[in-house]
């Protein structure tokens, strides 16, 4: 228990286990640190436990009858493991959930209003909206049409904008690139990077698209079968041969004489 004030991460999660319905163990001891002001990625394939990790941090597990059964989650040094989701949002954790999930029957403008913290004054809210429309000019053009009719990219931008209204210190995004054209992914990731730099907001990004994610984050964790199997700086991960082969579509020019005959996935899991 060392107290290092200057190097305290904004979020630290220590060997957290999550149970769904009291029986299904979805993550089995995940430890993740997000340093203040950094962008961190959680990589891994479908069903690895990335989304569950985010829900454990944001408190949305409860809505799906899941709970943290072991370990602890600290945000700015405070234990938040058992806290209600809305209190965590008040503290500055906002989770952009998978699949965009904008309020379809509300306009983008109303989507932003809906997310405003209770105490925010009208002028602060308007200033906040203008800032978000500056980041996402496409949204400004369609601010008064129904959100359900926005394109996938615009909905993702709205979902991020809606999260920004809550004034997060830690923004968590679950697969923001899902189902979007590559140029849109580049645009959205570029904006995320800008927000991270402009406002010093820490970002925890869950992605299957490791190639795009590793371009903007400083550090990454690889999760498989509910465990962290590898972590390191983005550079180190990009140059790792296993990551290249499984997640970056690399391994170009494989020399079939030297193909390894053991399963590298298995080695990670032991």
């Amino acid at each position: 228990m060392q107290e290092k004030v200057e190097a305290q991460p904004i979020l630290s999660m220590n060997s957290v286990e999550v149970l769904y319905d009291n029986v299904m163990l979805a993550i089995k001891g995940v430890s993740v640190q997000v340093p203040q002001g950094e962008m961190i990625a959680l990589l891994g394939s479908n069903g690895a436990g990335k989304s569950t990790t985010l829900k454990a941090i944001s408190g949305l597990l409860k809505a799906e009858r899941g709970r943290v059964s072991r370990g602890e989650i600290k945000f700015e040094g405070t234990d938040i493991t058992g806290m209600l989701a809305q209190n965590r949002v008040d503290m500055g954790i906002c989770h952009v959930i998978e699949g965009r999930r904008v309020f379809e029957h509300l306009t983008p403008d109303e989507n932003l209003t809906a997310a405003a913290p209770t105490g925010m004054s009208r002028s602060d809210l308007n200033a906040e909206k203008e800032k978000i429309y500056n980041y996402f000019p496409r949204l400004a053009e369609r601010r008064n049409s129904l959100s359900g009719y926005l394109s996938g990219g615009e909905q993702q931008m709205l979902a991020i904008g809606r999260a920004l209204v809550t004034q997060p210190k830690l923004l968590m995004l679950d697969e923001p690139s899902l189902g979007l054209a590559p140029f849109l992914v580049a645009e959205i990731f570029g904006i995320l990077q800008k927000i991270n730099q402009d406002e010093g907001m820490s970002v925890l990004l869950v992605e299957q698209n490791a190639l795009a994610a590793l371009e903007i984050v400083s550090e990454g964790y690889l999760i498989e079968n509910g465990r962290v199997v590898m972590n390191g700086t983005a550079e180190a991960l990009k140059s790792n041969s296993d990551i290249q082969e499984f997640y970056l579509g690399g391994g170009e020019g494989t020399d079939f004489h030297n193909v390894k005959h053991y399963s590298r996935r298995k080695r990670w899991l032991s």
Partner: peptide, 22 residues
Amino acid sequence: RTGIKLRAIADDYMASWSVGIS
């Protein structure tokens, strides 16, 4: 603002929780 939050709840519980709406 309160009315808009209620409409948001009707639209999507999970998304409402995610942005701190009770």
